[in-house]
Design a protein around this nucleic acid. Structure first.
Ligand code: SF4
Ligand code: SF4
Lengths: 134, 134
DNA sequence: GTATAAGAGGACAAAAAAGATCCACAAGGT
DNA sequence: ACCTTGTGGATCTTTTTTGTCCTCTTATAC
């Protein structure tokens, strides 16, 4: 139950690499992939996710590559995980009403809600900058 | 990320049915399955898991069936979930040393450990008895 | 002791998700 | 023009989830 996928793991390793680069420095997919030991083509997809949600900025052509779109101090672990894995959601019924016909007065429902809130709180409390300096 | 599977969901619904029966009353798989809206053969496997870990006791033959092996007040939601889904484990590297070559001084490691502890604490704080009376 | 009524266990199959790769294309630099 | 680098989509493989089936064992009833 409740396991981070490879994609999430790779995403963290990848963005940590970016966070460790000097401000303004762009990095190539291949470079990040090698350093983080992540399959290059897979990482490319992950970086695309980051770009889409505005965590990372990209540029093409010679001299192009990826860099953080915001300072690492302002990027939380939660944002990184959710960028590639979608919203944190311990049980499907939390998505919205009607997902489970039983959700009207389901006694277990509030427990999952609490779990969700706790996980979100922990991951929101950790920034990429903190993780990167080590 | 981190979603309970159907199996876990069915397990909870199933054991709640047992918890709502009068003490000493045995229930048939088919009966539990129908009431909980769970595929019967799948539920049978789940009940086998429960029996294996000692949460539920079973008997065969005429008059056989399933009942809680302990009072519902002494069964926590964590036990139920772990019985069918295995240990709560937000990231593979928590299983043990050597799972990830990077785990030596990995800065993210402690975060997952914290998440794990929190989830365990929440699920350990909820008993089947509490959930059943509703 | 034979029929019947359960659960136990294992093999197996379908469906979904995860993990990974490829290629044609767009955009930017020389 | 030509090279470089990211983009987007299609596709493929592997693993996990979800579910079924069949045979065997255990227990009761007649
Ligand atoms: S039974 Fe309750 S906890 Fe389970 S999916 Fe439905 S609403 Fe959620
Ligand atoms: S990189 Fe760190 S968090 Fe990720 S699997 Fe390895 S030890 Fe765990």
């Amino acid at each position: 139950m409740m396991e981070l996928t490879r994609k999430g793991e790779y995403a963290i390793r990848g963005i940590l690499y970016l966070a460790r680069q000097p401000r303004g420095q762009v990095s190539l997919v291949g470079e990040i992939a090698e350093a983080s030991e992540v399959p290059k083509t897979f990482l490319a997809k992950i970086l695309q996710n980051f770009v889409k949600v505005g965590l990372v900025s990209s540029s093409r052509g010679t001299g192009g590559g990826f860099m953080l779109a915001r300072p690492a101090e302002q990027i939380t672990l939660r944002e990184v995980v959710e960028a590639v894995e979608g919203p944190i959601m311990p049980n499907r019924c939390l998505i919205g009403a009607g997902t489970c016909e039983r959700d009207v007065s389901c006694p277990v429902h509030p427990v999952w809600e609490k779990v969700r809130r706790e996980i979100v709180a922990i991951l929101d409390g950790v920034t990429i900058a903190e993780l990167a300096r080590d």
